[in-house]
Simulated scan of single mutants.
Amino acid sequence: MTTHPDRALAAIRGPRATTRTAAVAALFVALVSGCAAETTKYSGQPADVTDQGYVSGDGTTQTWPVNDRGEAVTLTGTDYEGGAIDTSAWLGDVIVLNTWYAACPPCRKEAPDLVALANDYADKGVRVLGINRTDATGTAQAFQREFSVPYPSIEDTDGAAIAELAAVVPVQAVPTTVVLDQQGRVAARIVGLAEASTLRTIVDDVLADPEATPTPTNS
């Protein structure tokens, strides 16, 4: 009788090794597909839906009232054209952050909507910023050309920008879209594909909220 090599190897390794291998494979698939369950709480920051059966990657939207938005988020880095990015210089504007990578199907699907948002709201005090921790420059720039992306993306292969954002709100799925109010605080998050009308409604609400607008200081 001929034994299949994979079965023989499993028999040699035993059930523990087989189970461990399956678990690693399942975790990898979950992370790549943007369906990893969120399990971390960040004390002192906006209350999340952790421990309420929430699973990321399904387009679920979470918003926070002005008084529950925690500390401001500042992201710094370099875009794919070599320009410096520092979101602290954008205070006073609503900032839409979007994690993406070129081969991500939902990222490609939502790209035209994000491009339209950036163009339509450019004169309304809204900025869009991508965060890409996967792609090399050539791959990312090809994506930007394909979709005529008018906004920059941080080249985040070291994970620094994602880590800074994740210190405030979980962003384990790709894509994730986070909206910062005019004070740089997390106002909303969409985990998974951002539906265009939903995102625009969120942005409109944040723009219209006078409590989120910084109070001018006298120099």
Rank of each mutant, 00 (worst) to 15 (best):
A196H: 09
L117K: 13
A188P: 12
D156N: 15
L27P: 03
F28W: 03
A140Y: 00
T157E: 06
T198W: 08
Q182T: 11
C104I: 12
P170E: 10
G57E: 01
R200C: 12
I154V: 11
V168R: 06
L114C: 14
L9D: 02
V186I: 03
A194I: 02
G130C: 08
A167K: 13
W64A: 15
L114V: 03
F143K: 03
A25G: 09
Q52M: 00
D51P: 08
A22T: 01
P214R: 03
N132K: 12
A36P: 11
S153H: 15
A166T: 04
D6R: 09
S219T: 00
P152D: 11
Q62M: 07
T18S: 14
G138W: 14
A30H: 15
D79G: 13
A167V: 15
A116K: 11
D135N: 04
T61A: 14
V178P: 01
L165F: 10
D51S: 08
Q144N: 15
P210T: 15
A212Q: 09
L129Y: 02
L207H: 07
V174N: 07
A17Q: 15
D205E: 03
E110R: 12
T74L: 02
V191Q: 12
A11P: 07
C107E: 04
R145H: 08
L193C: 11
N98A: 05
I162K: 06
T21N: 06
W90D: 04
V178F: 03
D113R: 01
D86E: 02
A166Q: 11
T40D: 13
Y151G: 11
E195C: 07
R69W: 05
A37R: 05
V191T: 07
N132F: 03
G59Q: 04
V94S: 04
T76N: 07
T61R: 11
R20T: 08
I95T: 00
A140T: 04
S56C: 11
A161F: 06
N119Y: 05
